[in-house]
């Protein structure tokens, strides 16, 4: 979805942090993206390169740490791994699943100079 606006948000954070953290160039950006975050990683990479052109992060490398989706299965009473929001519990087949992990999209850290 909206990968372009996500990249614009990322760039805003990079620019905001530049003063606080005293850097002038971003070389690498590590993102943590959950499997259930609704982010298409290839589209994100494409948009990132476009959005950062001419900025302090021009030509920065984008490293994506993919986090698997996780949900609490109510009948089983335990966490299970899910790939999609509509997945059923792999053990009992229930859809009474509450997503509790893998829906994040975070900037983890940066390599800067």
């Amino acid at each position: 979805m909206h990968e372009m606006s996500l990249c614009e948000s990322i760039l805003q954070v990079l620019e905001q942090q530049a003063t606080a953290q005293q850097y002038s160039k971003v070389k690498t950006v590590w993102l943590e993206i959950g499997a259930l975050a609704g982010v298409e990683i290839e589209a994100l990479r494409f948009s990132f390169d476009v959005v950062v052109q001419g900025s302090l992060a021009d030509h920065a490398r984008l490293e994506v740490i993919e986090v698997p989706g996780q949900a609490w299965c109510m009948p089983c009473g335990r966490n299970v791994v899910v790939q999609q929001l509509y997945d059923l519990c792999p053990y009992c087949g229930s859809h009474q699943l509450q997503v509790n992990g893998g829906d994040q999209m975070r900037i983890k850290e940066l390599e800067v100079e």
Partner: peptide, 17 residues
Amino acid sequence: LSPKRMVQIEQDILAKN
């Protein structure tokens, strides 16, 4: 030469929104 270094951010991409 300005050395490269790591900066921890830990910020949600949608934090501003």
